[in-house]
Design a protein around this nucleic acid. Sequence first.
DNA 1: GAAGGCGGTCTTTTT
DNA 2: GACCGCCTTC
Length: 750
Amino acid sequence: MDIFSELNEAQKSAVLHTEGPVLILAGAGSGKTRTIVSRMAYLMKEKGVVPWHILAVTFTNKAAKEMKERIGELMEGNADGIWVSTFHSACLRILFRHAGLLGYPDNFEIADAADQKALLKEVYKDMSVDPKRYPEKMTAREISRAKDELMSPENFAEASKGDFSLEMVAEIYRAYQASLKRNASMDFDDLIMNTVRLFQEYPDVLDHWQERFQYILVDEYQDTNTAQFTLLKLLASKYKNLCVVGDDDQSIYRFRGANIYNILDFEKYYPGAKVVRLEENYRSTGNILSAANAVISKNRLRKTKTLWTSKAAGDRISFRQLDSPMGEASFIADDIKSKVSCKEAEYGDFAVLVRTNIQTKEIEDAFRINHISYDVVKGLRFWDTKVIKDLTSYLLTVAGSANDVRTVRIINLPRRGIGPSTVEKLLHFAREYGISLLEACGDKGRPIPISSNTRSKVRSFYDLIVKIRKETEGFPFSSILEKIIDETDYMNYLLQEAESKEKYEEMRQYIDKLKETLDSYEAETDNPDIVDFMRQNGLEGNALDKNSEDGTEKNRVLIMTMHNAKGLEFPYVYMAGAEEGLFPGYSAISMEDPMEMEEERRLCYVAITRAKKKLTISCARQRMVRGELKYASTSRFMKEIPANLLDTIERPQRATRYERKLSPERESAHEAFIEKPLAFSKEFQQLKKGGQIGGRKPDYEEGDSVQHFKFGQGKVLSIKAGERDYEVTVDFETVGVRKMFAGFAKLKKI
DNA sequence: GAAGGCGGTCTTTTT
DNA sequence: GACCGCCTTC
């Protein structure tokens, strides 16, 4: 394939300028990815740069994956060895080789959001900090911000001298870092900060990686924080071949530490940098682009650029003000339905963008009432789910990876009568003797100051872990997981905890997904190791993509936040909740910080430019805020769109919508679709009482050939009756002899 | 000492 | 409306 055949002039010059620093200012929908990928291909094909010397960094796994695929296509598979990864996983791979230099063991782990919270709680307890005076959330944010800014606890303490509460935060930060280290863990921010530290403290290590990565490409550069900026600066300082791609107008992660000046002042930091502007938009109609340009032009802090298109003006932008969020939601639902029923579009063509997650509720309700299939793109990530955290904690503990955070998590889960005060005592004991919490649980000889009754409970927890460990030696991870679920009666616990059948089913699906992931990992990896597995996956983003992978239905309306929509495009886009106080948000208005307001405006720009064909903006006159009905005026961003681009309908056609929603029939129809509380679902109650079914005798025998969904075909060597389930040993053609539990393995006789 | 219920608090966005 | 900590009960 010819690299240049599909590129415009600006894109071509971005590709051809291979040496020295380059800033590609890529407007929304301007063929950014195509340009980067072509540039990499050009480097390899024409300039003879070996893949080994190229590093491409992105923010999301999704972007990395897409880039990898496209470069693979363009290079016909000759691009192996090129590093295309997120900041975090690139740092992980680097740190992995030099962990010892920083005083970490080689098998260090990654502490995710939940681990951080647990650790912070411990620190609060140890230091007797009042969480009311220092809310954990705020402290966590300050610590994260400090790391983004490459501030060590010492720097932080220095900078906060004189401010009593900040000094306290500095103390907490210091203790938090200590307990991370004690647990041989790094949190997400540490991955970047420690890599920078590594490079700064060990010039020879830095030199090695500079030689390795002679050409560096960075995607979404406007989202980099100080730590990432410094990391790139260090890596690129030898060869100076740093090519960054980004759009200052799409910088929407300030709250996460992103520093817009990194891109605005690129030429200052990299003198002589070549700047290329990609302004031709291939995505949206003329009217949509004009609206986007008009809104963003109100920002002062930006590098001017104007998107243009050769496309027609297209439809005008619809704007509708409704009375309530319910009215707004049913307007959107009706609108989508009418477009679908006249075959103008199908469900998969639509996206509803909201500012905050709370807004999705009414929209979901309206979609359910109207039988519109939809999906909410949730912020919640698979690996942060409670079920997954629970089970992986067990898995790691069984595997012998002692970590107190995990032990605390599972020691009383399901309930086995070991409460907080016992855990507290055990922890103290463990510290005193320099052993892990788990070891403390199994300690017979030493006098843990707890009652004999509790002691036996603690003891049996320890025995349980040891038992599972012994009985599953050499089993595939998914089978160990099954054994854990079985021995702890975990499914029954979930059933009792679940507030609805749907929630329970959802959690069961998560478990299936975990098993699947474990099996694929094991089938693909030479020396499968559960700690390695967790490290790999802890950095993986939303694995909760219900409809993309094995999904049956892809044709759904997507509901998501504007942040989540970045990088995506849809023929029809609804921007819901265009009200002062919601969008722009209350804090942006009250803080009177122009930076905040400009960030909100950029978010608006991102939202508008997601639309290819038609943009519909809506808002409600009143909305419930903290239980109170509040009146809201139309968003200022709406007023920034020139009137001639708008198709405004002043009053809702049917002002009765709000009442209609409240009418008795409507109300009952509505209720039928709202998730039923437990008490109403007899079936679910019954399910709870019944508990889980144990293992049934399999329908295959020794010597039979069977099919496993991941490991393929195999021959049954033996079937043994275990305590609760049948233990089957199978010789697979692909992976050899494996033991597994019949009830879970779902082996099919062939 | 553990478990469950009650009342007070706080709402942006998350790799 | 959801979450968390505190308080009461067993």
